[in-house]
Structures are given as structure tokens and as C-alpha cells.
Amino acid sequence: MLKNKKNIKVMKLAVITTLFIIVQGCGENVNKSDKKDDSLTAHSLNEKEESHIHDNSTHSHTSKRIVKPEDAQQLWIFPESKDKLGSGGLLQIYMDPESHPDASSGFSKYELGVGGALPEHKHNKTEEIAYFISGTGIVINYENNDRKETIVKEGYVWYTAPGEWHSFQNTGNEPLKLVFATVPNAKHGLLDFFKKVGVEPGMEPSNTLSAEEFAKLASDNDLILKPAKID
């Protein structure tokens, strides 16, 4: 009888030990699984992180984040001759669809010579934001079809919405300097027009376009010239 009780106790102990080993093994497997999952998750995150870094690196080579003055494209707009800018304009293009295709805005600097003016025009798709750096001039726009002239100088900001007739003139005795943004930064826009009619400093200006051809070139690049009034 005592022997049987002893055998039963031994069997119970063996069963408990076996169950403990099984449970412990299951726990280790769960921990291993968790660690494996954690490892996979970390690996996945690292891959995404590396991919993100790679994308940014690739994107940074698409267009320059810092553009130096010497990197800007310089053009003479309507110069008097290949050696003299005169009342024409010096355009420096820092950002355009070609150099910064992913940018939402183009960005340039313009210096209008003494006595210079741009013809009245509008843009059907483009809005402009200009900041005057130095010089004195007048901005021309329309309110309720009434022509309005506003004096502008250093520190003034000028906004032009799509569809608004506008222009500006240099009324001072020094170049009228401004920087301006064009939105959107689209091909066949204002900057493309200037690139097609402008020349590099020192190059002979081209005067081969007729008035009709010039107006079409302007219109094709979202610069619509205001029709002249015939009295």
C-alpha cells in the first residue's frame, strides 16, 4: 500500500515536471517568435528609413536648394544693342521649370533700365508676386476698368492675379530692381517667354519677329498683350 502511494506521488511529480517543461518551451517559442517579429519590424522600418533617405538624396540632385548669383541665367530683355542695355531689362532667372521642375514657383530678379517700361499685358494662368528692392517707378493696373497708376519703391510688394491687365515703368534715374515669383512654375509661361525673346549680355538682339509673330509668341507663353486703343 505504501509502495503504491509512493509510485503515485512519483508519477504526479513526473507529470508536473513534464507540463512545466512543455509550458516553458512554449514560452521560449513565443519569445523567439516575438523577437523574430521585432527583428522583422525593425528591418522593415530600417528599409523604409533608408528608402526615404535615398529618395531625399535623389530629389536633392534634381534641383539646387541653394542657387548662387553666378548660377542664375542672365538675359538682356529688349536691349538697345549688343553692347548697351539702355532702357531694357536685365533678367536673372534663379528657378524655372527647367532648373527646378518640382518647385511650385519660379523665382527671378529683374532690373528695368532708366526710362524703361513693359507693355500692358495679362496672364490667364499665372499669378505674380514682386518685391521692389530699389529705384522708383509706377505700377499700372485696372480697377472696375479704370486705369490706375501707383508709385512703387523699395520695400513695396506687388501682387497680380491671373487675368488682370498690368504693367510697370521706371520713372527714376537709376535701374528699378525687383525680385518676383511666378506661380505655377509651368512650362510655356512668363519665364519661357523671356528666355525666347532675351539674349545673353553682349549678344546681338534679334528683331526678326513681326508684330503678329511677337504677339503669338507672347500668347503661347501666357503673356497676352493688351490691344491698343484706336481713336
Rank of each mutant, 00 (worst) to 15 (best):
Q73L: 12
H61A: 11
I151H: 15
E128N: 09
V152R: 00
G116L: 10
E127T: 11
A211N: 08
E154R: 15
I93Q: 00
P101R: 02
A103W: 07
N141R: 15
L112Q: 02
E154F: 08
H59I: 12
L85V: 05
M203P: 00
P205I: 01
W165Q: 08
D34S: 06
G198D: 01
V199N: 07
S39F: 10
H100A: 12
P184S: 00
K64W: 07
F107M: 02
G163E: 07
L19I: 15
I22E: 10
M1K: 11
K196I: 06
L118P: 03
E127L: 11
R65S: 11
Y159K: 15
T58H: 11
G86D: 02
K109Q: 12
K153T: 15
I140W: 08
I93G: 00
K187P: 01
K216F: 04
V183S: 09
E213G: 04
E28W: 13
S51W: 05
Y156C: 14
K48D: 11
L90V: 05
T150A: 09
V114W: 08
L176A: 02
E98C: 02
E49C: 06
K226N: 07
K187N: 10
I53R: 14
P101W: 09
V199A: 05
V183Q: 06
M95H: 09
G172K: 14
I16V: 15
N221H: 14
I230V: 13
S108A: 15
K12T: 12
K64V: 03
H43P: 00
T126Y: 03
L85K: 02
H61I: 09
G89V: 05
I230S: 13
L225R: 05
K216T: 09
L91M: 15
V67F: 04
I77Q: 01
I133F: 13
N124Q: 08
G172S: 14
W158Q: 03
E200I: 09
K84G: 00
H43E: 14
L217P: 06
L191E: 03
V197L: 06
L209R: 14
S87E: 06
K216S: 07
E143G: 05
D220W: 07
I133P: 07
K229E: 11
G113D: 02
R65G: 14
G86Q: 02
H123G: 00
T18M: 15
